[in-house]
């Protein structure tokens, strides 16, 4: 891998993203809209739930609104990063293949896209953490922020993979919205999974580990090492899958 090539592709990838009107609009609208909905629909009534990643039977009693603010932050990060990552690998796929014909390798192009995604994850994580702080100060804010970034990492890699698999926008967006809606926007809400009949599925969905990092950090002093490791492994596997599919789709005869 040649760093000069990756740097050039990264610069262009960032410019492309910044000039995408829909990306900028979504970046501004989704977190604001999600937080507005939570503020309009929740109360300060106390709720009780159990943290799934903490081994002992420990119930947490918090304000409904505070729980929802953390949960919806995770949902906003997951939805935004997966959609923007989808754009990175799906848009201009044929032009990317032409670049490979001209001398790039698929791994250099994917690395540049991953670097762009990493910047996005940090940006979105910071933005949503600031919004969260306007309404509620979690117990361990830096670790809640880490959970947001891990949600971005896992869902961003999922978006890269879906973008590499599907050529048409509609299928890609459908799969992004479908999973994000079911997983990070519904099943990972502790209020739901605390009483779920079957948690096996919930524990194997992409947002499980990042959600546990943020929830555990926001409302308890328990260790987040296990869900942190789980998030990194899950995201790493999705990134590997994205790399394999991207490399296969971009292959040329040398």
């Amino acid at each position: 891998m040649r760093l000069r090539y990756i740097a050039a592709a990264w610069r262009m990838s960032v410019r492309e993203l910044l000039r995408s009107r829909i990306a900028v609009i979504l970046f501004l609208i989704i977190p604001t809209l999600f937080y507005a909905v939570i503020l309009l629909t929740t109360t300060h009534k106390e709720i009780v739930f159990r943290l799934a990643s903490v081994s002992e039977e420990m119930f947490i009693r918090v304000s409904q609104r505070q729980e929802a603010l953390v949960f919806i932050g995770l949902a906003a990060v997951g939805l935004l990063t997966s959609f923007l990552a989808l754009n990175l690998t799906q848009k201009h796929a044929d032009a990317n293949r032409r670049l490979i014909l001209c001398g790039y390798t698929a791994s250099e192009l994917l690395s540049s896209k991953f670097l762009t995604l990493a910047g996005l994850i940090v940006g979105i994580g910071v933005y949503i953490s600031i919004l969260l702080l306007l309404f509620f100060e979690p117990r361990r804010l830096p670790l809640v922020f880490l959970g947001f970034m891990l949600a971005g990492f896992v869902y961003g890699c999922y978006g890269l993979m879906i973008g590499a698999i599907f050529r048409r926008e509609l299928e890609g967006i459908l799969l992004i919205v479908l999973l994000a809606n079911i997983d990070i926007g519904w099943l990972q809400n502790p209020i739901y999974y605390a009483d779920a009949q079957n948690t096996f599925i919930i524990r194997h969905l992409p947002a499980y580990f990042p959600s546990q990092v943020s929830m555990t950090a926001a409302f308890s002093g328990h260790s987040i090492l296990a869900p942190l490791g789980g998030s990194l492994v899950y995201g790493g596997l999705l990134l590997l899958a994205a790399g394999l599919v991207f490399g296969w789709k971009m292959r040329i005869r040398k």
Binding site: Y5, A8, A9, M12, C102, Y104
Partner: peptide, 9 residues
Amino acid sequence: FAYFAAAYG
């Protein structure tokens, strides 16, 4: 031009 120039090295 810059992008393709980078690709061509």
